[in-house]
Design a protein around this nucleic acid. Structure first.
Lengths: 156, 156
DNA sequence: GGTGAAAGAGGCGCAAC
DNA sequence: GTTGCGCCTCTTTCACC
């Protein structure tokens, strides 16, 4: 099982297969086969190729957090003290379940994170009691997402 | 098929099922059944309940964009002119495939977007030739993500 | 690269407890 | 809410084109 991360060639059929599965990971291979007019076995071969290439990183059920009462999303820019190493801060952030993403960024901040909370009060608690308590965090800037209007993956 | 978005009760078994499927949408229901010690039919019933509640929003194959040569991710804060309405700008942003997310935010900017490009030159072209060309966009601030260190969904 | 067939496994609904 | 059963579909591999 070798991995040709550089030499991957994707043709139109691969793209069609991926577009189906990117929007519904449980769509049966045979159903895709019927829709694009080739055999199920051919799709299997192509999927194996795409998996081995590393292009397919996995599959996920997507959860709607609002149903669980989580409706406040925010981005928080974090300033770290000079002495603070990024990996230590990231380790601390991993322990906070409300932190969904963490980026090491250029620009004003050292770190940009995405957090998901139940409401503004919960967000305030996470900022004051969890993030600000991390050793080396000097200051934060918070941007609340009032509405996420686009959410998609790379266009294949 | 009614939808009880407010009255959803998730017990420990539901959580276990969801945790399996959130990391591998194609994991067979019967395999999960064996691991947590109940019948496959019981899992089917619970999944139907969870789907009807709206908690399960769908499933996705996750693509690794680096294999396709996309390795520059950035966040861009966009300032809109006062006269500019947010929905018109969002419509324009939807037409740009490099834009993966778009948030209507509080704080300095009107809009915060996530963009994925092949490299810095590609990012520059997207900024100059696509985003800055949108009617009503006055200024942008770009934060390149040197490394995404956390990426996950809500903890169930 | 592609196909078709065949064996085994899983999906999914139903009746009963 | 759970179970066992049954039918049907899908998965996966194989030899072959």
């Amino acid at each position: 099982m070798k991995s040709d991360k550089e030499n991957i060639k994707i043709d139109g059929i691969d793209k069609k297969i991926l577009r189906f599965l990117m929007t519904d990971a449980r769509k049966p291979v045979l159903e895709i086969a019927r829709k694009i007019g080739i055999s199920g076995a051919a799709i299997h071969q192509r999927l194996r190729k795409l998996e081995n290439s590393g292009l397919i990183a996995g599959s996920k059920f997507v959860i709607n957090p609002k149903v669980l009462g989580y409706s406040t999303m925010a981005y928080v820019g974090i300033y770290l003290e000079k002495a603070m190493s990024n990996p230590v801060a990231v380790k601390a952030l991993e322990q906070i379940p409300e932190v969904l993403e963490c980026h090491y960024t250029t620009g004003n901040w050292s770190i940009l994170i995405k957090v998901l909370c139940r409401d503004n009060e919960h967000l305030m608690q996470v900022l004051n009691n969890k993030i600000q308590q991390i050793d080396g965090v000097s200051r934060t800037e918070t941007f609340i997402s009032l509405d996420q209007q686009i959410e998609r993956q790379i266009t294949i």
